[in-house]
């Protein structure tokens, strides 16, 4: 993929991807184009060249809404919940495109994040940062996506909540959902990753399994602090 917001490209021949049931993590320094790459995959950014393949189908020309219908789901980094609506309404809105019974998915999300069940009548804007992230992930899961894209799900939450969230993300992947996420906490994220992409200035600098990247001296020195 090559593309950017204005005249200048932010991504240069960058490739990211994930397989069913796997977790792929995109890491890299600030301004490397991690979030931009996610947006490009989801169709929120016009590509100058390159393509997005989903389930063997070229979806490059599809609008984000249509990608949701195909089974892609995206949790943005900021403003990822409906603050004035209750937790349950947030989840219902997640399932907006579905016309079938959503009770099962609702219970699934509540099983995954029990605290949301407790607070289901509370406006999402009144929840703590970690709980909000849970609502955001829950909302994205309600579409029953095949691939779940997370843009820095642990931004601004405490280390304990972060571990908890990572555990849940592993659980979601085990249910057969492909997970593609951007992470600031590179070390922890690569530990749970089946696949890792190190992005620098819009290029793929390293691509390998999470473990291999963690073992790579150069990656450790440059991005993981030794």
């Amino acid at each position: 993929m090559t593309g950017g917001y204005g005249a200048a490209d932010i991504l240069h021949d960058c490739t990211i991807g994930v397989e069913k049931g796997q977790i792929a993590v995109v890491v890299g320094p600030n301004g490397a184009g991690k979030s931009t790459a996610m947006k490009a995959v989801f169709g929120m950014l016009p590509l100058r060249s390159g393509q997005v393949i989903f389930n063997g189908e070229d979806v490059t020309q599809l609008k984000p809404e249509d990608r949701v219908l195909r089974g892609m789901s995206f949790v943005p980094q900021n403003q990822n919940v409906f603050t004035s609506m209750s937790v349950e309404e947030n989840l219902e809105m997640g399932a907006f495109i579905r016309t079938d019974d959503i009770t099962d998915s609702l219970n699934q999300v509540y099983d995954l994040f029990p605290v949301l069940k407790e607070k289901r009548k509370q406006p999402a804007g009144q929840l703590s940062g970690g709980q909000r992230q849970q609502v955001a992930v829950g909302r994205a899961l309600m579409t029953q996506p095949k691939v779940l894209m997370l843009d820095e799900p642990t931004a601004g939450v405490s280390p304990i909540v972060m571990d908890e969230l990572f555990d849940r993300i592993i659980e979601i992947a085990r249910m057969g959902v492909a997970i593609l996420m951007v992470e600031q906490n590179a070390k922890q994220a690569l530990e749970i990753a089946d696949k890792g992409f190190v992005l620098v200035q819009g290029h793929n600098k390293f691509t390998n399994s999470g473990k291999a990247l963690l073992a790579n001296q150069e990656v450790r020195r440059a991005f993981l602090g030794g």
């Binding site: 809404e65 943005p76 919940v81 907006f96 495109i97």
Partner: peptide, 23 residues
């Protein structure tokens, strides 16, 4: 109602409403 809630969702956060497939 579903439509009413989707109006509130759109009013609350337009981008997220689009991501949820609200027309």
């Amino acid at each position: 109602t579903r439509t009413g809630k989707s109006m509130r969702a759109y009013s609350d956060n337009e981008n997220l409403a689009l991501l949820s497939g609200i027309n």
